[in-house]
Design a protein around this nucleic acid. Sequence first.
DNA 1: TGTACATCAGTGAACGCGCGTTCACTGATGTAC
DNA 2: TGTACATCAGTGAACGCGCGTTCACTGATGTAC
Lengths: 204, 204
Amino acid sequence: MKRGYHHGNLRQALVDAALRLIAEQGPTGFTLSEAAKAADVTPAAVYRHFAGRDDLIAEVARQGYDIFAALMEFAYNAGKPTALAAFEATGRAYLAFARKYPGHYMAMFESGLNLQAHPGLAEVAQKARAVLEQAAEQLSQHLPANKRPPATMFSAHIWALSHGVVELYMRGAPGAKSPFPPEDLLETGIGIYLRGLGLLPPDA
Amino acid sequence: MKRGYHHGNLRQALVDAALRLIAEQGPTGFTLSEAAKAADVTPAAVYRHFAGRDDLIAEVARQGYDIFAALMEFAYNAGKPTALAAFEATGRAYLAFARKYPGHYMAMFESGLNLQAHPGLAEVAQKARAVLEQAAEQLSQHLPANKRPPATMFSAHIWALSHGVVELYMRGAPGAKSPFPPEDLLETGIGIYLRGLGLLPPDA
DNA sequence: TGTACATCAGTGAACGCGCGTTCACTGATGTAC
DNA sequence: TGTACATCAGTGAACGCGCGTTCACTGATGTAC
């Protein structure tokens, strides 16, 4: 494990330590000093790689959005050629991401950091959002134009439902336990929603 | 404003100060010392009325659940005799509560406090939840028994959607701005969902 | 291959700060007579 | 109504702590010759 005086890749080691700490204690419980200690390094060393605490969290979020966008993109492509299958796959991918990358997810959605304040963060966040919007756009082509809701509203509904399921039913949740597996909850919820749009047969 | 040496109702004054601070800075940014200062009192005085910082937050949440349950109950009753109207009214009430009582809302859903750790908190939370579940139960009576989802799943969907809308589209949101008014987003989302359940005509 | 030197990643000590919490206290308030 | 006294809400000082951040430094690494 001895890597000599210089660390080798301290920057990413700090990100990884931050990820673990954020997943364990939430983004606000996370401290720069702890992350430094976890990486076997003095707190001051962090400043060789990041402007400060917020900048480290922002980098975690940035990597999160990257992974997230890639995952959504992959799910979307895997679901093609059916617009419906592609759309449903992105919904599942949302939850899978939240489960598999809790530290990233928290840094992205629960740290309260300002997307505009960190260069590049807003763009990569928008890129992730765009995948879902594209899936919604394609799917809404299957609706008669007159009763077609805007695709952005469409995807906002799904995004909100997914986020709500994660926050309320996937976390160790405040005291209560989930009545249903989050995955089932989202799956059925999206199913009912799509039926309501006329994209699934009423008796499916 | 002089109320003499004794404060009069310091307990509630501290709760009110906490509410304002939590609404402004989030539940984790909130400090006991600031709350004390806002109530024109020494930090130590807080300990005459609360066991500590967490206990004060818990009391804010407790009062929040009380108001929340009352609001939901009122909306539910005002929507009767139609099960559908009653149900939709509770959805609107959820958002109205989040908007009108942001400090309470944050203490309840974003402070990460353990419902079980504070006596009475779990009960009052359950009471609030029960109102929505009751509305869902009644509404699901209008569905053929064979294709009726469990009412708890039903209400979980609506709860998740509502919470997601609040977190993602009602807050000053991380950098982005909402594409739609949150109220519209929830209204249309619930509408589509109910149509999917067969509780609204397909062309409504 | 060997030497001199520049670079710069990480050190270690220190800082000022605000936090939650404790403690012995004081003096306004309420009550008993 | 007046006096003596018990209560207890709020004071003020102090504590230990961990935080984010700064600074002059050191010594391992990489490069030029």
